[in-house]
Design a binder for these strands. Sequence first.
DNA 1: CAGTATCCAAAGGGATACTG
DNA 2: CAGTATCCCTTTGGATACTG
Lengths: 118, 118
Amino acid sequence: MECKENNFANIHKKEMRAVQDSMDVLNGKWKIAVISSICYYENRRFSDILKDVGGISNRMLSKELKELEINKLVKRTVIGTQPVIVQYTLTDHGLTLRTIINSLTEWGVAHRKKIIDK
Amino acid sequence: MECKENNFANIHKKEMRAVQDSMDVLNGKWKIAVISSICYYENRRFSDILKDVGGISNRMLSKELKELEINKLVKRTVIGTQPVIVQYTLTDHGLTLRTIINSLTEWGVAHRKKIIDK
DNA sequence: CAGTATCCAAAGGGATACTG
DNA sequence: CAGTATCCCTTTGGATACTG
């Protein structure tokens, strides 16, 4: 009995840690929006995302993109024209977030119906 | 052609808004962890959650629970014994978050394998 | 175009002590 | 037990100006 309870507690702890790992990556006011922007269009430039994610500043976009790059969710490609063009793409690993994005999209709609609208 | 592009852009905007609505509810350093704690155990007391979510302070737990209540994800029940006992449960609406929690759990595990460990 | 640098205000959140 | 209240440091992020 004690063993069973401990197992449950341990599994629970691991699940909590896993969820937290995800949230650490996805936190920040704009992260999900930035991912969505790139995700749907597949190949986006800095200025495209800037326009797409309403309200974000270039300073913030730069920061968020860097963090996403560090976490290997986004790939940055410089095209050395003049002036410079930079392309952002989701990596394969980044694309695995689509399930979560879709869940969040559906839930967001349902939640708005339930709470925000009425 | 223009019409098609506009439709796509509009749908995209709506999806981005929906995702943002979700994140507004789930943001905050501890929100998901608190939900997970209640979700897995179904019926939890304030002090249980406090122990379960490692590192959270009572001040923060109190705040997060209030916000979750406002968003109708959590139900608070006072049992008028002495000293007082308070039970927290997920509402039906709160339980619909399970899909997301599960996605986040799975992704968190995969992400840790890919990045955090090596 | 794609960022950086700087400044600054506001929000977030920890530690501690207190209450019905 | 289940919170509140207070203090105070840290992080976040907006505005603006500048650069290769």
